[in-house]
Design a protein around this nucleic acid. Sequence first.
DNA 1: CATGAATGAGCCTTCATTCAT
DNA 2: TATGAATGAAGGCTCATTCAT
Lengths: 200, 200, 200, 200
Amino acid sequence: MPLSEEQVLKMKQKRETILQQAILLFAERGYDDTTIAKVAKASGVSFGSVFTYFENKDQLFHAAVTEPLQEHSVKLLDFDPQASELLLELERMVTNHIKMFAAFDLYLRLVVQVVGYYNRFPYSFAELDAFHNIFREKIAELLVNGQQKGLLHVQDPKYVATAYMSLLIGLRVNLTDEPQSNMWEKFVPVAMQLFGPKNS
Amino acid sequence: MPLSEEQVLKMKQKRETILQQAILLFAERGYDDTTIAKVAKASGVSFGSVFTYFENKDQLFHAAVTEPLQEHSVKLLDFDPQASELLLELERMVTNHIKMFAAFDLYLRLVVQVVGYYNRFPYSFAELDAFHNIFREKIAELLVNGQQKGLLHVQDPKYVATAYMSLLIGLRVNLTDEPQSNMWEKFVPVAMQLFGPKNS
Amino acid sequence: MPLSEEQVLKMKQKRETILQQAILLFAERGYDDTTIAKVAKASGVSFGSVFTYFENKDQLFHAAVTEPLQEHSVKLLDFDPQASELLLELERMVTNHIKMFAAFDLYLRLVVQVVGYYNRFPYSFAELDAFHNIFREKIAELLVNGQQKGLLHVQDPKYVATAYMSLLIGLRVNLTDEPQSNMWEKFVPVAMQLFGPKNS
Amino acid sequence: MPLSEEQVLKMKQKRETILQQAILLFAERGYDDTTIAKVAKASGVSFGSVFTYFENKDQLFHAAVTEPLQEHSVKLLDFDPQASELLLELERMVTNHIKMFAAFDLYLRLVVQVVGYYNRFPYSFAELDAFHNIFREKIAELLVNGQQKGLLHVQDPKYVATAYMSLLIGLRVNLTDEPQSNMWEKFVPVAMQLFGPKNS
DNA sequence: CATGAATGAGCCTTCATTCAT
DNA sequence: TATGAATGAAGGCTCATTCAT
């Protein structure tokens, strides 16, 4: 007896609810302090149901870490390393990244957890790391471009890209302010400095 | 009958061993995944002995976070914000900081944990935060000085200082390389850019 | 999906089994020497199941003390302080009480424990104490009645009632004989003396 | 090297202090809730010293139960079952017993504990039981005497003696009042009734 | 003899996971 | 599929006891 379409939809929604609550709790309290029972309660389902949608706690955590990555990565990679107005593009990108990182709050706590204990979550880490590399390479490409055009001081693009990523993550770890706070924007020019813009 | 001097020394060493192993495990595996039994085993003592030296797991964690802070903070604050050769002093400072953060590896994982879950470790966080403020203020002082002398582009020193701290922490989170790696030095000029040196 | 009626019944029975075994063990060995594991084993369930039915050890003990009280108190208060044939009623009552106390064995050991360490079990004690007061007052009412009718020597009813209760408890503490023993009945006339019947 | 007399005296005193504190704590908190460390602290010695004077915790408890018995038993048996003025002697005895039981407070808590859990403390119980028998027999002797003289109603002396002992213990369990309270005396006439004095 | 560091048995409790309904 | 009772591994912690100093 195949499930009705409505059934399937309901299940998808239930799975999504559980995943969102898992992200919330894993991010706020960490892996061990988050119990299946808490996730279930927050999702309004019995804890048995969590096991219907996710094989076990590890899988749930892995899903919480990797599934949002698809969506976020698109936004984070939404800049043009070959843009003609390179400095403008750079500033637009940095502004967007800073805003995103301010808003990602929860998810980034999760990322920090995985990256910080990469030996404990090797599979989740591997996926995050893969994205990091893509991200850094695209940033590096933009940098090389800017340096060739004489708009940026010459620095090793690899290290600048890594430093940039690190700055974004470090800010998220360090700042406990609300994402709405306009304080975040203040960091845009500071972050820009990393790239060594000549006219400043 | 007071303990012999030799006894006291032995105990101090044992406490130190336990603390070091605790730092190692807490840093590598996180608070919850680190059990008293694991710490004891790594230290070569029975788990009962851990309770001889630390009241409970919380206290042990707190000690692991705050005791090294004393030593590290001295080194981190070892720069002169009123130096006459300001750019040189800045570079020296950044170089030292980068080296230190490369070496701190373990300890900084601990810091990230506390900062990331500050609501879970409020007392440990308070002590770290107090140091952060001192650190940022001293960096800001140096910055103001450099800007007044016309050596640095004018930026809000508060945000630059926070960004600098964030960059250092972010690098440590992001990089899993050995501290011996000379890769770390490559970040010195990049980090310098944050401060907006004019002649570069 | 609510549990089937059969399920609910099974659970009630299981809870009852655990409670009975808890009463048995708490009574025979005391609070501290009774472990959850022992209760579980005696009940034929895993120790984890005990926590399904009782929040923790304290709650289990409290339930063991207070739940039987409801049932017992009805029986203990089953006498008529305004009876016309007062001496007959008195004798009936004493006979019943002695029989009950002989049979209560286990439960009364529990009561002695709570009363003896009332500062350790304040909530359980409070419930027992409330019943004590009701019991003594009803006894006192009967006494006053008998004294007014000239059937009993005049004594302070409050003290007689307390002494009567104490005698019952003291007998239970002192005697380790089986409740079936007809020895218990022998105490009926002795206990009667406490009330000071005139024709004896 | 034999110990000096002074040494021996000091040790005796230390043993006595430990024993007294043990009685206090065992009585107030029960066997399991009383730790060797607490006894040692209350006695102003290191917990290691407790083991110098008592083989282990069980022995300490046994000593706390049985050693005071010698002294108390003398007082409890201080009445003359062959007294010529029998009713006067009876009243004197009851008054003394009631006063003693009011004052024994602590020690009787210990007794109740042992008697209540006789299967847990079989050796201590055996010694208490031996005294109980002696006590009851002497009481019975006095009773028989009184009954033969026609001063007391005829009742089975064995049961009266047991009831009397039970009343004393029951009162101690039931009453939490201070021994100084003059409330205790009020129970003397009530207790007297147990023996069935004719002229009352 | 006095001390207290060291040890590990054993306790209560939490929680992931299984599985009958 | 949904539920939650049942289970037992594992953790933090207490405390009696041993024994070196």
